[in-house]
Nucleic acid binder design. Structure first.
Lengths: 148, 148
DNA sequence: TCTTGACCTCAATAATTGTTGAGGTTTTAT
DNA sequence: ATAAAACCTCAACAATTATTGAGGTCAAGA
């Protein structure tokens, strides 16, 4: 059994960068922002456990879904012990993040279809255009476009 | 016919703000960024045609969908100067936008479906998770997660 | 040993998307 | 005519999400 230690060997920042596809400067940044953690060697270099890769994966997925880093941090830090999400944790996180994702998909789809419709209807008159009162907060805020 | 002029009456910045739900400072900003246009009264105050409301609606919808302002500007600038966009203009805008929109929708949908799958699978392990290497630029950049 | 590559910190810069404030002008209503 | 409300410009600040650079240290191989 010559390689047993390999899977427990800590990772350097360069290794994490290579394997995660995230720039070193970004890893430093994530650490400052408390999204990931490391300890230091005697020579002050960062070392990471392997699950940092999973955390980073979660972070990037959430980011692509439009979740701001602050929320991601909060969600991750809400995990007991600040541990890396396990299956159950991941299920909770991803379902909560999925709603926002759905909103964005819906907005995009509405936009696309609205544009399509408007090709035919030539509308976008203040009152009738399907693109007009789609915004939830738009229409709830300041009466939106319709009144007066 | 006492009200005929009403619908052609230009809008002040305050009116546009109220009716669109967008702050005046933001309208100024959008104008600096060439997303909207106005002309000035003798006293240097902004006046808008009503179709600015339509433009703003499009801008906000696109923004909610995650389209950056620069892209929105580019798309909108395809509309001829000042004149109220007609059916043909919107057709051009729409078709020029649709590919990008479709890409974006597809990416987000993939992500969402990936999330759905992964909720059950509890994966996100470095090598196997379907969410890992889905990022177009993620995987094209620095080999992503898989190698070494 | 010595050089090279990897790493460190800290500060500055950058793009995006606005908001705030100071100081002054115009319009509107009484 | 005057006071209040609305408007103007320009500069500075702000949050987010990083990247770049200067100046220096550490580790590993020739």
């Amino acid at each position: 059994m010559p390689e047993k230690i390999d899977v427990k060997r800590p990772l350097s920042v360069g290794e994490v960068s290579t394997r995660s596809g995230v720039a070193i400067s970004t890893l430093h940044f994530y650490e400052r922002e408390q999204l990931i953690e490391s300890w230091r060697t005697a020579g002050n270099q960062r070392r990471y456990t392997r699950d940092v890769l999973r955390r980073i994966a979660v972070i990037r997925v959430a980011q692509r879904a439009g979740v701001p880093l602050g929320e991601i941090r909060d969600a991750l830090s809400a995990l007991p012990n600040g541990r890396t999400p396990n299956q159950r944790d991941w299920a909770r996180l991803s379902t909560s993040w999925r709603d926002g994702l759905n909103d964005r998909i819906e907005a995009l789809t509405k936009l696309r279809d609205g544009l399509d419709d408007c090709i035919g209807c030539g509308c976008l008159s203040v009152q009738q255009c399907p693109l007009r009162n789609t915004g939830d907060h738009l229409s709830s805020r300041g009466q939106g476009a319709v009144l007066l």
